[in-house]
């Protein structure tokens, strides 16, 4: 039987020194971005206390926007990890879809049903 691992599928396997320098530069840039995002998240977490913000009706919206900001930054970091570090961005389009589409569909439904039912259960408990 013919072996199918004879075909060299690896992403940019065996690249040259110059190409390597370019890839490394990209990696360091992404590192800087991820560091900035993490530091930003922690600074906001320390200085914008949820307890203080939620105790006042007028400042509630600030926490709600911080919350959305947190989720946005997290998704941005996740995207950087998956597409740059895990090289999914360099893979074939059909692979990208095969990995992301089912997962996103499942998780979006899970989030919807989890939180929707939580509110219903919370209203009915005891």
């Amino acid at each position: 039987m013919e072996r199918d691992d004879i075909i060299e599928y690896s992403l940019h396997a065996h690249h040259s020194e110059e190409e390597g320098a370019k890839i490394r530069k990209n990696i360091y840039q992404v590192t800087v971005w991820m560091t900035i995002i993490t530091i930003l998240e922690v600074i906001v977490g320390i200085y914008c206390s949820r307890t203080t913000l939620m105790s006042n009706e007028d400042t509630k919206w600030i926490w709600e926007s911080i919350k959305i900001g947190y989720i946005g930054l997290t998704l941005l970091k996740a995207g950087l990890i998956v597409f740059i570090f895990m090289h999914l961005g360099d893979e074939r389009k059909n692979l990208k879809r095969m990995i992301l589409a089912p997962y996103i569909a499942f998780v979006l439904y899970l989030i919807f049903i989890g939180l929707y039912e939580a509110v219903a259960v919370g209203g009915a408990m005891y």
């Binding site: 998780v107 899970l110 989030i111 989890g114 039912e117 939580a118 509110v119 259960v121 919370g122």
Partner: peptide, 12 residues
């Protein structure tokens, strides 16, 4: 998501 479930149920 189950963490979110527990928390939302409690907060509700």
């Amino acid at each position: 998501v189950s963490l979110g479930f527990a928390r939302h149920a409690a907060v509700t």
